[in-house]
Design a protein around this nucleic acid. Structure first.
Lengths: 230, 230
DNA sequence: CACATACAAATGTCAGACATTCGGTGTTAG
DNA sequence: CTAACACCGAATGTCTGACATTTGTATGTG
């Protein structure tokens, strides 16, 4: 295993192009939904052949980051591969499996959050908690769900495991699309809010067991709520 | 022109080709490591232009399923996208994050296995257990690690969550590559074997808590063993 | 036998052309 | 005036042919 300091491992042009374009998407310069410049423009702009451009675009299309519409143009579809791959995989999975996986990640990450949370994490969690309670009064379902998702993502993020966090975020999107319109009985909603508050307190107190317990309870609560819907 | 009863939403040729080739790989007709036929042959064999073939191959290359070596040929590199994507993602993650994620999946899946295991699962687990103990006597590290991996994968698989199983398998590969050559003190090895046996017994008795406990203990054991290596 | 060279094969890149499809625009019939 | 229809331009999809670059191997020579 001779580790060459300058391995002159020249990546192919199209591979470089893939990185360039991926960077455009990941950085937000090409936001999701945008129609990217046509191939002809990219050819002139980048100074490479159309074959090369198409090779790179095709790769990103099959990676799920882009979507090409014949006779129209090419559009940005997702901002990360993990997102597109897991989304496709989640679509062909049983809903139970996705929910289960997300639940176990959430519970464990809540315990991690209690151990590793920083002061900044706490500030952010408390802010989202207040925001959630504010929107809970407004009775707007979409806003409530959105704030709730952000709160849970912040909890998981405070666990400090970026791989786990990314996976949880993707699963959240999949779950949200799966059960978008579930109604919450007001009694359940108040208990939900209470558990959120206790979860943050446990994380603040660095109480790993308590945090995991609260997270598990929240999951159970949502499960029974969605079960009752069917 | 709206006489068409079926919208015959024709997928592009290259997209069809991607599915065809992916099938070849997934089915094992083209095993990992094999050099696939050169583009020229595929063109003649499939009756499409080289552009189309290259479009499909390029997509699979960037998906991580194939690897093209200029001047040599194109080789099969992985059998599923989830594998390649997660592997790449895992490579850029901290080792701690990968281990943590795998551990939490394993512990939870062990609990699931206790609840959902079939008789066939038990037979398979007991068979692998015997095999593991047989190879443990031979003192061959590579064989021991391989059987151990198969055993844990079987446990997770018995949980009946295919999404979780697939993710665990991929993470296992990543972990194995990360810590391939760790030595086991013989005292640890015997305890390891004992815990495996207790885990299978708990799963057989449908003891969810016991199974989770054993799984957690096994993880702890491996953690301390690998920690001591550094 | 060892080393260097030459050659064949395979992938990478480029250029041009035509096919196919979609969105918009202008025209026309009601 | 509105709605349906035909048309056109633009963008992606596919094909062909050519040349460049790299790799593995066979061959020749000391």
């Amino acid at each position: 295993m001779k580790n060459l300091p300058a391995p002159r491992r020249v990546a192919s042009l199209s591979a470089q192009l893939v990185d360039t374009l991926r960077e455009q998407i990941a950085s937000g310069a090409w936001p999701v939904g945008m129609r990217i410049p046509p191939e002809h423009d990219l050819v002139k702009q980048l100074g490479v052949g159309r074959t090369t451009v198409r090779e790179a675009l095709g790769a990103l299309v099959h990676l799920g980051l882009l979507e090409a519409r014949k006779g129209d143009g090419t559009y940005v579809r997702a901002s990360s591969e993990m997102q597109s791959v897991l989304m496709r995989r989640a679509e062909t999975s049983r809903g139970r499996d996705v929910l289960e996986l997300r639940a176990v990640l959430e519970e464990y990450a809540s315990g991690l959050a209690a151990l590793r949370r920083t002061e900044d994490d706490l500030i952010r969690l408390r802010y989202l908690l207040d925001e959630a309670e504010a929107t809970a009064d407004s009775q707007e379902m979409a806003a409530m769900a959105e704030v709730d998702t952000r709160f849970h993502q912040a909890v998981v993020s405070a666990g400090g495991n970026t791989l786990l966090t990314e996976m949880y975020d993707v699963l959240s999107i999949a779950v949200t699309e799966q059960i978008c319109g579930t109604l919450w009985p007001s009694a359940t909603a108040t208990e939900h809010t209470l558990l959120h508050r206790r979860l943050v307190e446990a994380i603040a107190a660095q109480d790993e067991v308590g945090a995991r317990y609260c997270a598990a309870e929240i999951v159970k609560l949502t499960e029974t709520a969605t079960e009752r819907q069917k």
